[in-house]
């Protein structure tokens, strides 16, 4: 088994609402998996279960051979899984640089000097080096999201989870964020991307998962899903979407 993450028999309810119903899938090392589907299909919940921001009601999430759903060392596992949120969630009370260095220094993964050096290198890469001492309220949405991406990268994660990273952005800022993610993916970062950007999913993914009603309806290569979908739900969804 070369799987970095394996999901087995995952169930999640919010009250009486069944959000995930027996989800099984896996993510291999170096693989880029996109999750698409209509709103309320459970794709964000699935992603949030992977790093246990949502605790599944039943099932296993095996990360590096350990069932983390039952592990007590959740914080340790999360350090190896970077997450990027729809609403950026940058820390408003810290400068751009502090946003990046806070976690590695607090968790004693790096000294302040090492973290500073890493932060400057990452900021250079995404073209925000000149903003390093500013507070996030001076940044545009696209810049905030790029900052959020490198904040997660500073922890040197083994996998990156993207939860609709461009959904809250003005249209003209979508491109800059997608290009950062694309660069990352091309460098071999294992990634799971929940997205409504079908063109992007088609371009960067190794595998696409289509979810509806809390289940994986269909999965396959981007060509299989987008060009020759088999399931009627997939066909219906894609026919409604312009990309």
């Amino acid at each position: 088994m070369n799987s970095l993450i394996q999901v087995k028999g995952l169930y999640k309810n919010f009250g009486s609402l069944e959000v995930l119903k027996n989800v099984n899938t896996h993510v291999s090392k170096g693989e880029v998996v996109s999750i698409i589907g209509p709103s309320g299909s459970g794709k964000s919940t699935l992603l949030r279960c992977l790093n246990l921001l949502e605790i599944p009601d039943k099932g296993q999430i095996i990360f590096n051979g350990v069932d983390i759903a039952k592990s007590v060392e959740v914080d340790k596992h999360r350090q190896k899984m970077g997450m990027v949120f729809q609403l950026f969630n940058v820390f408003p009370h810290m400068t751009v640089k502090e946003n990046i260095t806070m976690a590695p220094v607090t968790l004693k993964k790096m000294t302040q000097a090492e973290a500073d050096e890493k932060a400057l290198m990452l900021l250079e890469k995404i073209g925000l080096l000149d903003k390093k001492d500013q507070y996030p309220n001076k940044l545009s949405g696209g810049q905030k999201q790029r900052l959020a991406i490198v904040r997660a990268l500073a922890m040197e994660p083994e996998v990156m989870l993207f939860d609709e990273p461009t959904s809250a952005l003005d249209p003209e800022m979508v491109g800059e964020v997608l290009s950062v993610i694309k660069t990352l993916v091309q460098e071999g970062m294992t990634s799971v991307i929940v997205t409504h950007e079908m063109g992007f999913a088609k371009e960067v993914s190794d595998r696409v998962i289509f979810m509806a009603d809390g289940q994986i309806v269909e999965e396959g290569t981007p060509q299989e899903i987008f060009d020759t979908p088999q399931n009627p739900r997939t066909k219906e969804f894609l026919s409604k979407i312009l990309y």
Partner: peptide, 11 residues
């Protein structure tokens, strides 16, 4: 979201 972001980093 602030709590979630911090927890997702491993704090």
């Amino acid at each position: 979201g602030q709590m979630e972001a911090a927890r997702s980093l491993g704090l």
